[in-house]
Every structure is written in structure tokens, then in C-alpha cells.
Design a protein around this nucleic acid. Structure first.
Length: 870
RNA sequence: GCGGACGUGGUGGAACUGGUAGACACACAGGACUUAAAAUCCUGAGGGGGGCAACCCCCGUGCGGGUUCGACUCCCGCCGUCCGCACCA
């Protein structure tokens, strides 16, 4: 006799082994079926998987299993984003080698992922810290260098003087290093960059073609790239006011129309002219130093006052004969954007206005808003940035802003100053080149050699990989590669003299920018196998968190282009479809001392939340995304161990739309688990009462059987549609609906159902197993076996809905009077408009609602609605 | 400040291109089974009012307008919540 409960944890292991033994999830390039590449963002091996992973990988697995059943040759791989800082921190804190720490974590997490029953091709597993992987990454680097996509630039960076490393902007908190707490310095430092700006325009333009990406992500990328069209204007400096060699000051502006309102020039503290002035001007020198002490964090910039210092330099106004404009060094001008210099038009730019008020510069309006009188229009606290008509602007007077921009551009382009045109139309981008140098050990070594005689020399491909040395120490700050006794000393590949290796390693975003391509041929002796990438790329469906909307996805798009240019892939866009799933949230709990408490330590007694052991009162806080710091986390292992993976998967897919945040609740888990038990019972019942495996449909069908069949086929169609659109919650709801119908049918059928009902019961139960298989694969196998099958449901084709059963002969439509629903009408599907109208007007409720008024109009939309206007 | 998304019962949410608002689930209540409980099964339910009753009426998708025979859906203006960017010239 069968047990009366489905023992998920036990059965799940059995089915996982069955799948693995048959190797059914291994992808092959020579499979003739249409390919489908499903990928979820690979995890960082932090130690254990969290609920966010469970949600992400469940969704990907549903897509993979559904597509596989629908006749596709599916590639669904998994790997590890394994380089990065936490491994080095573990080395510093616990003395464990970063490599050991990482591979131990991978082993643990691999086991956890396997317990989820994901349909992954584990034979393609890779870790970015595998020598095999970063070897090929070094090959890519050299190819990109050769292709002119790599550069070495000296740039301003956040330098942590205690840890001896460069910090990313987000690692600087209140001007201090996030780990050392030391005041961060702005430093000029040479670093390797990828020339992503070469593709700025293309990366922007191609966003239009990414029609299967969320609009939100495309917008964020467009903003990040930040294209703006304007004019490069060359201002001549006034003789005798400017240091030697600085005869021209270049400025980028998007508002050349406001040039007649120019009240000052402002240059960045790091501008060449500023440096030149500082050499003879101690006050300017002091001001520049003060600017350097300020951090670059958003909060600091926001609170920073507009400050500047007059350099004494004067430039000639390009359109007003004899007029001179003073040049300031100002803290709000960015070195990195445009030319690092601006002209200030206070009337029409808020920053410029604030600066002009502080330094007493004139505010002359040159754009008049519609409806204002030029005689009285004045600027108060707010600059006017809108459209209007030009005033106080000589030859531009009376023109619109757009026309004035063009007129000024034309005029300046035609003029020559200091041997060049005074104005050049130009497009600027906010996007900067991608600095990849990190002064760290646990990353991919940059395969370059510094030779005193030959300069920068690439490591010959034959000498790759440049392997990380094993014997490193973390007891002192700084880069272990740099202080390793022998590693960096090598002969120059060109001249043979003593030289040193580059000790910087690559940003870990480089690793994740091409792993999707490497999965196509993970063991190839070259970065990519042309047949494999040709077959699999692009990724058809990529799934991950929105937090990667900009950097990772933009870098990957750049890499696809770079790899295309260097002959490694044949596509420009790596991801055809992108889906960004929401986060997993949970209530937060605090005890009387204000300390965070884990959900598993909280229980409800007599309506109050208390600690499980001490019964001390617990305060329930707001629902927030799961994080270790707030302790509102639930361990996937314990859920899977208690309820089984299918329960966790089902919960993740139920109720909440996948792009939204989902709240994890114990009640919801219980509910999910109860339903899975119910499926198991219903299918068991249906197996007992239904017809035998493979029985064909009896000739006659009574309405009882017919109705169940209709429900079954409606569910097949509905779930198929929902899964195609990734609306998992909708698919789940329809499975629930079929469960309710099946349950009612089983009750109505009694102990000895007729043949037609027996057939319908089996059909319903089989459909059940098949359509729920992508979501709860283990339970589906169990049900499939319960129904007497010897095959695996994972290898069964997706069921097809019988169109004939989806349409009924009669339809029920609503009947409205003056837009209010008064009754409904059941009528033949193919009834004519006239028949529908006549039947509707005969309805008692309709007659009453009309109250004898004259009927003005009757709107009839067949299959939908009747609206009587009276 | 700029850009974007969202606002529907006690709760999560559904409603395809404008056509019966609240599918489905959670929680809740009542009932069946049980010595009892758990589990399970059945039933109920947006709010308000009327009727012995099957039923009927009014209000209702953040607020105020508009378009339409008809608006959760489209347009305009507010309010609120969340997210991204943030001195980008």
C-alpha cells in the first residue's frame, strides 16, 4: 500500500539521480532541433546559496524545461563568478588561501543547486578562477590589444593609502575606504582601459533592437551612455592674461544659443590651464588642493557649495567685439566630461546661476519664455531652461532656441581662430572608458610586461597562461603579486633584458562579460569554438537581477562587439531576451535590545510574536529584501530539507509576478506544500479511477466527461501561453484551477465511473503531470509514475491543446443597459448580431432597467457584450 | 533636480488589443469527518441597503476632471509609494 503522504525530500533524490543517469540535460551542437539557450546570471561563490538564487534559478529552469519539452535543443549551463575581493578578505581574516576558500564554497553551493533539481548541463560547469578560463581571457585581452580596443591611460582614481589599492566609487563611504576607514585620496594613476567609448553610439543605437529587454533597463543604459549633441567652442585668451602656451580655451556646450549670456568661464581643478596658473598663483594652488581633498560620493557632491577662484585669465567673447570674460577654476566642473571647461550662462543654467550669484557676475537673460515682456523679464532664484525666443543676442534675436543653436554653430564653424575653426559640432557621451586595473591578487593577471627598453610588451600567446602564484601572503596591505619575491621578474619577450610583469589583475566584470560565450565550448583550447558559438549564440533568454542593469549588461554588450571584431563570435548582441526578476523579501524582527532576530527564531503565541526559546517579546518590523545584516533570511537548505525543492520552487512561482519583489512567508510555504500534497492525492485518485495507460477515447462523451476535457485543454493552452510570456504566477493559477475541477470531477464520478469519464480523468491527470513538470519536476515524475508510465516526464513532449475543445458552441455574454451590467445571455457562438440583440432585449432584467424609455442605440459586440443605450 | 515604474478586497494578486472588476491563492468564518485534535473535504465572503426566497438596487480599481455606448485599461491635472541617475555643461 502506498504511503498517504508524498515524501518529497526522499523522492526528489531518486528523480535527480534518474535524470543524471540518463544525461538528458546535456546539450549537443549536432542536435537537429532548433536551439534555445537559457542562462541565469551565474552566482558568486560566497559560501551558500540564498533565496534570491532559488528564485532566479527556478525561473530559468522552468523556461529550460518548458522549451525542452516543446521540441528545442536546450543549452542551460551553470558556472561560478569566482574571482573577487571576498576571497582575499577570507585569506586576511582566516588565513585560508583564496583558491581553497573559493573551491570549497563552490563544492557546497554546487550541492545545494543540485538539490533544487535544476535541468542544468553540469558537464559545462566552469569557474572564472579556473586557469583554463582565465588563460583564454588573457588571449582575448591580447586580441583586443591588437585590435586597438585596449589602452593605457592615466586617470584620477580613489586611492586607499592604507590598503594600497584603488577603490571603486561605491567602495568609498563618506570619503573613507570602506574597509580601512582611511581618508581616500584622489590620485592620478595609470591603468588599463577597454575602449568601450568607441562603441558608445552603437551601444546606444542597438538598444532599439533589443525588443525583448525590459524598457526600464534600456532606458537606464541609454541614460548611462548619456549622449548629448553640442558645439565645441574655442575661446581665444586675451594676451598677457594667460600662461605661456595657453592661447585657446576649449569648451563643450549644448547651448551655443546662450553664448551672448556668457558671464564667466569655469575650468576643472585638474584642467591643464588650472595647473599652469597654479604654478605662479599660490591661492589657485591652494584651491586646487582643497578640491582634491573632497570625495566624489554623491552625498558629498550634493552638499558641496559652488566655489571658485578667479585665475586672472581672460578670454575674448567669440561674438562680441572687444568683450572679455573672466576664467575661474571651479569645483563643480568635471575633468572627465567634455573638455573640462565650460562657459557659464547664469540666466539659463541653475549651477551657473548659483555660481554667478556667489561671485557677483551679471545675469543677462537671452531666452525669453512665451508670454513674457522682454522689458520686464528677469531671472530670480531659478534659471530659465525652457524654450523661447532669443533676446539681447545680436544676430540671434528673434530666433527660436533650436534655430539659434544652429545659427551660432554655423557662424562659429566658419570663423578661424588660432589656426582652427572656432566652433565644431560635436557629440559627447557620459560613458567613460572602462578601467579594468585592480591592485589585487584574486583576479585574472593582465598579460603585459613592463620593459625599460621596449616599454609595454604583451606576453606572447604561446607563453600564456600567466598563472597566479600559489605562495602568496596577505599579512600586510597591498598587492601580494607586487611584493612576491620572484613572480613578477621575467625577461622581456622582445629584447630579453630583465623586465617586470604587470601586477594589476582584471576587474571581475571582465570575467562575467564573456562567460555566456565560453559555455558554448567550455573546454576549447581557444576562447571560443566557432561552431559552438555559431550554434548557440545569442542567449535566447537571460534571467537575473536588475542590479546588473547597467554595468554587467553593458560590459557584456561591449564584449560581444569586441569579440566579434577580433573574430571570436559572430554576434554583436549577446542576449536576445532579458528578464529581470524581483528580490525576495521578508519581515524583519528585533528583540527588546534592538538586536535583529532570525525568522526561524520567531514564533507567534496568543497573537504575539515571541522568541522560540526564551519567549521574549519580538517586535515585527517592515518587510525588506533579505539580507544577512538584518537577519531576515531563510536558508534554502532547511526549506528543501523539510518540504522539498518543489515546494520552494512552487512558492517562488506562485502569486507574485516574477518581476516584482516576492515576500517569503512561512504561511505561503505551508500553502505551497499543502497544494503539492493535494496534487499527489488527486493524481493518485485519478490513476485509480481513470482508464489504463494508452487507452483510446471512447466514441461517445457525456457532458460530465466533456466538461472535464474542456477544462484540461483550457489549462494546457493557458499554461503554455503563460510560460511563453514568463508569467509563472498565471501558470500556477491555472494549475490550481484544473486541480479544483479535477477534484470536483473525482467526487462526482463516484467509485465506478463510466468509460468516458475514466478517459477524461486520466487525460486530466496526465496533463497535470506534464504542464506542472517545468515548475515542480520531481513531483511531476512521481505523478507520471503513479499513472503507470515507465518513461520520464522530463523526456515527454509538451501536451498540445485540442482546439476543438477550447471553443464551446454557446457563449455567455454580459448585457448592459447604459453601461451597467443588468443580465447575461447564453447564446449560440455563431449567433448573428440581430439575434443577439433580439435575445438581449427580451431579458426581463433588461426590460425592467429600460423602464419603458426609448431605445436609442444597441451596441452588439459578438462574443463580448451587448450595451443597450436608452 | 532629472528619468522611470507602480497605486485594485483583510493580504499576494488576476482581468488578452477599452467589453461581466476581484480569477487563483493566503488569511478568515461556518459545516462534515474525529472521543478530541491535526490532516483532509465542503460552503461562504468587496462595501452598503432591500426581500421569506430564487434574487434586486446603490457605491466601488489612490484623488479630481475628460474622451467613449462602455474606462482598472486611453488623455489631462493632482496625491502617495518605490526604483535608477545625480553638478554631464
Amino acid at each position: 500500500m502506498a504511503a498517504d503522504r508524498y515524501d518529497a525530500p526522499k523522492c526528489e533524490k531518486h528523480w535527480q539521480k534518474a535524470w543524471e543517469d540518463k544525461g538528458i540535460f546535456q546539450a549537443r551542437e549536432d542536435d537537429p532541433r532548433p536551439k534555445y539557450y537559457v542562462l541565469e546570471m551565474f552566482p558568486y561563490p560566497s559560501g551558500r546559496i540564498h533565496m534570491g538564487h532559488v528564485r532566479n534559478y527556478t525561473m530559468g529552469d522552468v523556461v529550460a524545461r518548458h522549451m525542452r519539452a516543446s521540441g528545442h535543443n536546450v543549452l542551460h549551463p551553470m558556472g561560478w563568478d569566482a574571482f573577487g575581493l571576498p576571497a582575499e578578505n577570507a585569506a586576511i581574516e582566516r588565513g585560508v588561501h583564496p583558491g581553497k576558500w573559493t573551491y570549497d564554497n563552490i563544492a557546497t553551493m554546487r550541492g545545494q543547486l543540485k538539490s533544487m533539481g535544476l535541468s542544468l548541463d553540469w558537464s559545462r560547469e566552469l569557474a572564472t578562477c579556473d586557469v583554463e578560463y582565465y588563460h583564454q581571457q588573457q588571449v582575448l585581452f591580447l586580441d583586443m590589444l591588437e585590435g586597438g580596443l585596449v589602452d593605457r591611460k592615466t586617470r584620477k582614481v580613489n586611492w586607499d593609502p592604507v590598503d594600497h589599492t584603488v577603490l571603486a566609487n561605491e567602495q568609498v563611504i563618506d570619503g573613507r575606504g570602506w574597509r580601512s576607514g582611511a581618508l581616500v585620496e584622489q590620485r592620478e594613476q595609470p591603468e588599463w582601459v577597454f575602449k568601450i567609448t568607441d562603441y558608445a553610439q552603437d551601444l546606444l543605437d542597438a538598444l532599439d533592437g533589443l525588443d525583448r529587454w525590459p524598457e526600464k533597463v534600456r532606458l537606464m543604459q541609454a541614460n548611462w551612455i548619456g549622449r548629448s549633441e553640442g558645439l565645441l567652442v574655442r575661446f581665444e585668451t586675451v594676451k598677457g592674461t594667460s600662461p605661456e602656451g595657453h592661447n585657446v580655451l576649449e569648451v563643450f556646450t549644448t547651448r551655443p544659443d546662450t553664448l551672448f549670456g556668457a558671464a564667466f568661464m569655469a575650468i576643472a581643478p585638474d584642467h591643464e590651464l588650472a595647473k599652469a596658473v597654479a604654478e605662479t598663483n599660490p591661492q589657485a594652488q591652494a584651491f586646487i588642493e582643497e578640491c582634491h581633498r573632497h570625495g566624489t560620493t554623491a552625498a558629498e557632491i550634493e552638499t558641496q557649495e559652488k566655489k571658485g577662484i578667479d585665475t586672472g585669465v581672460r578670454v575674448a567673447h567669440p561674438a562680441i567685439e572687444g568683450a572679455e570674460i573672466p576664467v575661474y577654476i571651479a569645483n563643480f566642473v568635471l575633468t572627465e566630461y567634455g573638455t573640462g571647461a565650460i562657459f557659464g550662462c547664469p540666466a539659463h543654467d541653475q549651477r551657473d546661476l548659483e555660481f554667478a550669484r556667489a561671485y557677483d557676475r551679471p545675469v543677462t537673460p537671452v531666452v525669453l519664455p512665451a508670454g513674457e515682456d522682454p522689458a520686464t523679464f528677469a531671472i530670480g532664484e531659478e534659471a530659465y531652461t525652457g524654450d523661447g525666443v532669443l533676446i539681447n543676442s545680436d544676430f540671434l534675436d528673434g530666433l527660436s532656441v533650436t534655430d539659434a543653436k544652429n545659427a551660432m554653430a554655423d557662424r562659429l564653424s566658419a570663423r578661424t581662430v588660432s589656426g582652427g575653426p572656432q566652433g565644431v559640432r560635436k557629440t559627447e557621451f557620459r560613458l567613460r572608458d572602462w578601467g579594468i586595473s585592480r591592485q589585487r591578487y584574486w583576479g585574472c593577471p593582465i598579460p603585459m610586461i613592463h620593459c625599460e627598453a621596449c616599454g609595454m610588451v604583451p606576453v606572447p600567446v604561446a607563453n600564456l597562461p600567466v598563472k597566479l602564484p600559489e605562495d602568496v601572503t596577505f599579512d600586510v596591505p597591498g598587492n601580494p603579486l607586487d611584493r612576491h619575491p620572484s613572480w613578477k621578474h621575467v625577461p622581456c619577450p622582445k629584447c630579453g633584458k630583465d623586465a617586470t610583469r604587470e601586477t594589476d589583475t582584471m576587474d571581475t566584470f571582465v570575467d562575467s562579460s564573456w562567460y555566456f560565450a565560453r559555455f558554448c565550448s567550455p573546454r576549447a583550447g581557444v576562447p571560443t569554438d566557432p561552431n559552438a558559438v555559431g550554434h548557440w549564440l545569442p542567449v535566447d533568454q537571460y534571467i537575473g537581477g536588475v542590479e546588473h542593469a547597467i554595468l554587467h549588461l553593458l560590459y557584456s554588450r561591449f564584449f560581444a562587439r569586441a569579440m566579434h571584431k577580433t573574430g571570436h563570435v559572430a554576434v554583436d548582441e549577446p542576449f536576445r531576451g532579458l528578464f529581470t526578476q524581483g528580490m525576495v523579501t521578508h519581515e524583519t524582527y528585533k528583540d527588546a535590545d534592538g538586536k535583529w532576530v532570525l525568522p526561524e527564531d520567531v514564533t507567534v503565541r496568543d497573537g504575539n510574536s515571541v522568541h522560540v526559546e526564551t519567549a521574549a517579546p519580538i517586535t515585527v518590523g517592515p518587510v525588506e529584501s533579505m539580507s544577512k545584516s538584518k537577519k531576515n533570511v531563510v536558508d534554502p537548505d532547511s526549506i528543501i530539507g523539510t518540504y522539498g525543492a518543489d515546494t520552494a520552487r512552487w512558492f517562488m512561482l506562485s502569486d507574485t509576478p516574477p518581476e516584482r519583489d516576492i515576500e517569503w512567508t512561512s504561511g505561503g510555504v505551508d500553502g505551497a506544500h499543502r497544494f503539492l500534497q493535494r496534487i499527489w492525492r488527486l493524481v493518485g485518485d485519478a490513476a485509480a479511477k481513470g482508464s489504463e495507460v494508452g487507452a483510446s477515447a471512447p466514441s461517445g462523451m457525456d457532458s460530465e466527461a466533456e466538461d472535464l476535457r474542456r477544462a484540461t485543454h483550457k489549462t494546457i493552452a493557458g499554461v503554455t501561453n503563460a510560460l511563453q510570456k514568463l508569467r509563472f504566477n498565471s501558470a500556477v493559477a491555472q494549475v490550481y484551477e484544473l486541480a479544483n475541477t479535477l477534484s470536483a470531477s473525482l467526487q462526482a464520478a463516484g467509485a465506478q465511473p463510466k468509460d468516458d469519464v475514466r478517459f477524461a480523468l486520466r487525460e486530466a491527470a496526465e496533463a497535470f503531470a506534464r504542464v506542472s513538470a517545468p515548475m515542480v519536476p520531481h513531483l511531476a515524475e512521481e505523478c507520471w509514475a503513479l499513472l503507470g508510465h515507465k518513461t520520464l516526464v522530463a523526456e515527454e513532449p509538451w501536451p498540445e491543446a485540442d482546439q476543438a475543445l477550447l471553443t464551446e458552441d454557446t457563449v455567455t455574454i454580459a448585457v448592459q443597459v447604459n453601461g451597467r451590467r443588468r443580465d447575461e445571455l447564453t447564446i449560440a457562438r455563431d449567433a448573428s448580431k440581430e439575434d443577439i440583440e433580439a435575445a438581449a432585449l427580451k431579458l426581463e432584467n433588461v426590460e425592467r432597467a429600460i423602464e419603458g424609455r426609448k431605445i436609442k442605440k444597441v451596441v452588439v459586440v459578438p462574443l463580448r457584450i451587448v450595451n443597450v443605450v436608452a
